[in-house]
Amino acid sequence: MKIGIVSAEGRGETDRLISETAAALVAAGARLSGIVKVLDEVQPEDSHHCDMSVRVLPTERTIKITQTLGGESLGCRLNPTAIVEAVAAVASSAADDTELFVLNKFGPEEADGRGFRDAIANALERDVPVLVGVTPATRAAFDTFTAGMAETLPTETAEILHWCRAAMNKTDRQGA
């Protein structure tokens, strides 16, 4: 089982590292499945910078996974229906020749036993390595889910790329 964790400090840093790594790997010809955060999304002024869309790999399809709850709301902005849609899109777009499964974040849905947990498990069962972002808030649930077998990666794109190439047994992808 090959599973690498990215857990960087700073708002959006883990998303940036995961997205940049995935983009570099795709540019080098790697076959990925999963989701990455859309980084160039313009945030409306009343969004509190919490609106989020994800890109389904290997396609260019994007899905907005947050919902507008109003300025006074304190509830979770994740849209459970959109998460289900994203999970289904990932499942339908995953190919048999996938070399790496990427998930921008093991979040609250996954910590509660939903979301992309089955997709992660399916990838690992097929011997496809997994790269996943994990926050301190969900780390304990993630460690329980993976039985502590994941490797925490350095928070530098070059090091993450090196791990991914090695995990995919594609050390010849030096362009990535």
Rank of each mutant, 00 (worst) to 15 (best):
D172Y: 00
V56F: 11
K105E: 15
A119W: 04
T135Y: 02
W163C: 12
D15C: 03
A167P: 02
D127Y: 04
M52L: 13
Q43S: 00
A147H: 08
E13H: 13
A24T: 03
L32G: 06
E156R: 15
A91T: 14
S92E: 15
P58N: 07
E72H: 04
I18R: 04
F142G: 05
E99A: 00
V26M: 07
G10F: 08
R165Q: 04
K105H: 07
V102C: 01
V56T: 11
S47C: 11
I83T: 05
T81F: 05
E125W: 11
A82F: 01
D15F: 04
V130P: 02
D46Q: 02
R165E: 03
T66M: 05
A111G: 11
I18Q: 05
N122A: 15
A141M: 02
L32T: 03
G113K: 08
L153P: 07
E159Q: 15
R31C: 08
T14C: 10
T81L: 09
E72N: 04
V87K: 13
R61D: 14
D46I: 04
L74G: 11
E125H: 14
A147I: 00
A141E: 04
A24D: 09
Q67D: 00
S53N: 05
S53L: 07
V87E: 14
L39W: 08
L100I: 01
A23K: 08
E13F: 09
L69P: 01
R114M: 13
S33L: 02
E20K: 10
A176Y: 10
V134K: 10
S73N: 10
T14G: 13
K105G: 01
I160Y: 14
D143F: 01
D127R: 14
C164A: 14
G12F: 08
T14R: 10
A89S: 09
A95W: 09
L74Q: 12
L69H: 00
R114P: 06
S53C: 04
T59P: 13
A166T: 05
E60D: 15
G75T: 03
R16W: 06
E60V: 08
F142K: 01
P136D: 14
L32E: 09
E45R: 03
S19M: 02
V6T: 12
F142N: 03
I18L: 07
A150N: 05
M1G: 11
R139W: 07
G133R: 08
T14L: 11
P129G: 04
L78Q: 09
A88L: 10
A22H: 02
E125P: 01
A123S: 14
F145S: 01
A94I: 07
G107S: 05
L32N: 03
S93I: 05
I65R: 00
R31I: 11
I120G: 08
V132P: 03
D127P: 00
L32W: 03
